[in-house]
C-alpha cells in the first residue's frame, strides 16, 4: 500500500497556519483522501471548529498534547495517527504544528515509519511581527531554516522596505527555500507538487503508482570537516531521492546540504547550528 505523505505546517501563533490549511483543503480534498492533524491547544479548539465548518471532506485528528510546552513529547500522537491510517488510508496528511514546535523533532516521529513519510515542510511567516518574533522565539528561526516553502503572509501589512528586509533575512538562513508572498495565505498559483512525491517526477520520469517512500531525520552533534562531508555525500545509495539539512561544521558556521536525485549542492553559511540535522527521503 502506498504510504501517506506528510506535510508539516509550521509558523508562530497567529501567522496564518489554519488559513493555509483551509486553502490547502480546497486544493486537495475531493480528489484525494486527506487527513489533518491539529493540536487542540492551538486556539483551544477554535481553529479546529473553523476547519470542521469549512465544508471540505477530510479526516481530522485532534490531539491533546498535554505537555504542549514540552516539545519533546510530540510523538504521543503517532499511535492515533497509525489508527487513522489503518481506518481511512489517507494519501496526504497535513500537520499543523504548535507555534513553538521544532519541525525536526516533529519530523523525526516519522523516521522509517511503515505508514507515513515526511515529504515537505511549509513555514508561515507573519510579516507584521517576524522581525521581533525571530529574535525572541528561537524555534521560529528553526522553522524558517528547515522549510521547503516559506510563506510570507500578511504582506499587505508591511511596506516594501520592510518586506524586502524580511525576504533578505529569510534567504540568509534558508537560501534554498521557495518563498511565496501572500495575503490570507492565498496561493492560487503555487504548485505543491514538489512537496508531493505522489505527483512529482524522479529523474524526469513520473513516479510509478504504488512507489513507496520513507523519511528519516539524521541527527548528530559532531562537528564535521569538509572531508567528512565529502565522504558522506560520495556514496549516497541510489535509493535516496532527496536529502536536505544543515551540517554542523563549527561554532559560527554550518553547511547547507541539498541533494535531489543524484545532484548535490553544498553551501557554507556564516551561522552556527547546535547539531547536524538532515531530512532524508528514500524510495523503497
Amino acid at each position: 500500500m502506498t504510504k501517506c505523505n506528510v506535510i508539516l505546517i509550521t509558523g508562530f501563533l497567529g501567522s496564518g497556519k489554519t488559513t493555509l490549511l483551509k486553502n490547502l483543503l480546497e486544493i486537495y480534498s475531493g480528489g484525494r483522501r486527506v487527513a489533518v492533524i491539529q493540536n487542540e491547544y492551538a486556539g483551544a479548539g477554535v481553529d479546529a471548529d473553523e476547519l470542521k465548518n469549512s465544508g471540505r471532506e477530510f479526516y481530522l485528528l485532534e490531539i491533546n498534547n498535554g505537555s504542549i510546552f514540552c516539545i519533546c513529547q510530540f510523538a504521543n500522537f503517532i499511535e492515533q495517527a497509525g489508527e487513522l491510517y489503518e481506518k481511512y488510508h489517507p494519501e496526504i496528511m497535513f500537520i499543523e504544528a504548535s507555534g513553538m514546535a521544532d519541525p525536526i523533532a516533529a519530523g523525526s516521529v516519522f523516521n522509517n515509519h511503515p505508514y507515513f513519510f515526511l515529504s515537505g515542510i511549509v513555514c508561515v511567516v507573519d510579516c507584521a511581527n517576524y522581525e521581533v518574533i525571530k529574535r525572541l522565539v528561537l524555534p521560529v528561526n528553526n522553522q524558517v531554516r528547515i522549510a521547503d516553502l516559506v510563506i510570507l503572509n500578511k504582506q499587505e501589512l508591511v511596506d516594501e522596505k520592510r518586506y524586502n528586509s524580511i525576504i533578505e533575512s529569510v534567504i540568509e538562513i534558508n537560501p534554498i527555500a521557495e518563498i511565496a508572498s501572500t495575503s490570507f495565505c492565498n496561493l492560487p498559483d503555487f504548485n505543491f507538487a514538489d512537496m508531493d512525491p505522489i505527483s512529482c517526477r524522479i529523474a524526469g520520469e513520473p513516479v510509478k503508482p504504488g512507489t513507496s517512500f520513507y523519511s528519516e531525520i539524521i541527527k548528530n552533534h559532531k562537528i564535521m570537516s569538509c572531508a567528512e562531508i565529502e565522504d558522506f555525500i560520495k556514496d549516497v545509495p541510489s535509493s535516496v531521492y532527496r536529502m536536505k539539512g544543515f551540517i554542523r561544521t563549527g561554532a559560527q558556521e554550518c553547511c547547507l546540504l541539498q541533494y535531489v536525485n543524484g545532484a548535490t549542492s553544498l553551501r557554507y553559511l556564516n551561522f552556527g547550528v547546535s547539531k547536524t540535522e538532515i531530512i532524508k527521503i528514500s524510495i523503497i
Partner: peptide, 13 residues
C-alpha cells in the same frame, strides 16, 4: 485545563 486519558492535561485558557 483540558484533560486527557493518556497525557497530562493542557492549559486551555
Amino acid at each position: 485545563l483540558m484533560w486527557a486519558k493518556d497525557n497530562p492535561p493542557s492549559v486551555k485558557s
